[in-house]
Design a protein around this nucleic acid. Structure first.
Lengths: 168, 168
DNA sequence: TAACAATGGTTGACGGCGCAAGATATTGAA
DNA sequence: TTCAATATCTTGCGCCGTCAACCATTGTTA
């Protein structure tokens, strides 16, 4: 009766599947993103900025949303700023804070990258499943997400309230 | 009609959910694994060795299964060997190759780590879903996995055929 | 108002992993 | 048989992101 070993537990396999799918997709996506000059983290940060009213978020909110450390966000934004895709702007109401603001060039870049990217998403993920399967998958993931990462929407309300910056 | 922007596409959100769940779980799991002195990659390598007949796999098969590069596997196995959890053994039939063999101490360690780990898996993942939801999730993931990582079972047959090493 | 904790962000040191090149072994074709 | 092409593994180097220490600012308590 070798099948009772704990290292063969089904629940472990369920985790393994999730990990393998994540890795596989990441690899499939990486090449095309690289052609747009973006890493996964860079794309995600720009996406979150692009989806926010006024296309700006505080550094610490980006950290909370992405589960990078604030240090990691500093370095990603450093690179994006060097590339002209993001600028930093000081925060009027709290002079400790810094907004990361998506530039026009940044919005353009992320839009182009995503338009292209979508082909991969379709081919390697959403397109492989029936609408019912995809809906079930998404629902299950959402349940888990809401438990393991409840902080994933930090800062959006504040950013909408902030005065938009026109000098970008 | 701002909702037609491509960066708000639903399929992108589906990917985002997967990524967030993966990250969230990874973080939840990391602390307990660290208490057993193991990183996620180290655990996975030991798990795959432990599940294989004779508890051994070629370096290159480990690379294929884990989507680390062979270089990455070399370094992980270096650490595990230094810790006495794995040993390298030369491969009689192809002298280019190297077996990574789980030691008794290694099997003990991974078993203890997994037993403990399972509590987290249950709490943050499988336990959050009904059996039906979990089954649907697993099925959908398996479909995607089989497409994006068809090579995920490399080397198991060969390892079973190889003469077991008693001098571990 | 002074003192001190808490928060936001950056920086230096460091570790992990990928890339590309190298050493060794195997395979195949002439 | 011999030599080129290929496969396996390791190593030097560099990038990326974490950790911990740090500075600046804000909030709190007395």
């Amino acid at each position: 009766m070798a099948t009772t070993r704990i290292i063969d537990d089904d629940r472990l396999t369920a985790v393994g599947l999730l990990v393998e799918v994540h890795r596989g997709l990441t690899q499939k996506f990486a090449a095309r993103l690289a052609r747009h000059g973006l890493s996964e983290n860079e794309l995600e940060i720009m996406l979150r900025l692009g989806r926010t009213p006024n296309t700006q978020l505080r550094m610490s909110d980006l950290a909370a949303q992405t589960s990078l450390t604030t240090s990691g966000v500093t370095r990603v934004v450093d690179r994006l700023e060097r590339a002209g895709l993001v600028v930093r702007a000081s925060c009027d109401t709290d002079r400790r804070g810094t907004w990361a603001v998506l530039t026009d060039a940044g919005l353009e870049r992320v839009t182009a990258a995503v338009a292209d990217h979508m082909e991969d998403v379709d081919r390697w993920y959403t397109g492989l499943l029936t609408p019912e399967q995809l809906a079930a998958l998404t629902e299950a993931l959402r349940i888990v997400r809401d438990t393991v990462r409840p902080e994933a929407v930090a800062g959006v309300a504040e950013a909408a309230r902030a005065r938009p910056r026109v000098d970008v």
